[in-house]
C-alpha cells in the first residue's frame, strides 16, 4: 500500500480551527473519527500524544508528522490538516506549522507504517509542493495536487 491510496477528500480539513498543539492533535484525530476511520478516539489520541510528548514531530518549513501505533486501528490511517494561519507546534526552525500529516497504524503493521512515513518525508522535501498544499482552498485541490492530476 502506498500513501497515495490513503488520500481522500474526507480525511482532509482546511483550515484547521485549533490554535495550539493539544487542540490540533485532537482536531486531527477527530478528522479520522468523522470519516469513520477509527472508533476509539481516546486510544488513538493517546498513541499520538505519547510520541509527541517525547519530542515535537514538527519539522522545518511548517510541516508536522504526528504519528503513533495503536490497536485502535486495523490498518494505516492518514489525516491531513492545513492551517494557512500557522500554529505554534515547537518546530525545529521555530516557524509556525501549517501542514499536518497524521499517520496511525496497528502495532503489527510496522513495515507499511514505516514505508508510508518515508513517503511523507520525501514529500516534505518538495518545497514547491508543500507551498502549493498550504495554499489549497479545499480538499479536492489537495487530492489533485498529491495525485498530480
Amino acid at each position: 500500500m502506498t500513501l497515495i491510496e490513503l488520500v481522500e477528500e474526507n480525511i482532509i480539513k482546511i483550515p484547521l480551527e485549533s490554535n495550539d498543539k493539544p487542540d490540533v492533535l485532537r482536531e486531527l484525530v477527530q478528522i479520522l473519527k468523522d470519516a469513520g476511520e477509527i472508533e476509539d478516539f481516546d486510544a488513538t489520541l493517546k498513541a499520538v500524544q505519547q510520541r509527541e510528548d517525547k519530542q515535537s514531530t514538527a519539522l522545518e518549513d511548517g510541516i508536522v508528522v504526528p504519528h503513533g501505533k495503536t490497536d485502535a486501528v486495523t490498518d494505516l490511517r492518514l489525516a491531513i490538516g492545513i492551517a494557512p494561519q500557522g500554529i505554534d507546534f515547537d518546530s525545529m526552525d521555530g516557524k509556525p506549522s501549517t501542514l499536518f500529516f497524521l499517520l496511525v497504524a496497528p502495532p503489527d503493521m510496522s513495515g507499511p507504517h514505516v514505508a508510508a512515513l518515508a513517503e511523507i518525508a520525501k514529500l516534505a522535501q518538495s518545497k514547491a509542493l508543500c507551498k502549493a498544499l498550504t495554499r489549497a482552498d479545499n480538499a479536492r485541490e489537495v487530492v489533485e495536487l498529491l495525485t498530480g492530476d
Binding site: 510520541r51 517525547k54 519539522l59 525545529m92 502495532p107 510496522s110 514505516v114 514505508a115 518525508a121 516534505a124
Partner: peptide
C-alpha cells in the same frame, strides 16, 4: 526489513533514535 526507510526517517528527524530501534525490532517481529 526496511531499514533504509527507518534511517531516512531518522535523518528527516521524523523518528527519534529510540523509535528507530523500536521500529526495527517491530519489523523483525513482523
Amino acid at each position: 526489513i526496511n531499514t533504509k526507510a527507518v534511517e531516512d526517517l531518522l535523518k528527516a528527524r521524523i523518528f527519534l533514535q529510540d523509535e528507530q530501534v523500536e521500529y526495527e525490532h517491530d519489523m523483525e517481529a513482523d
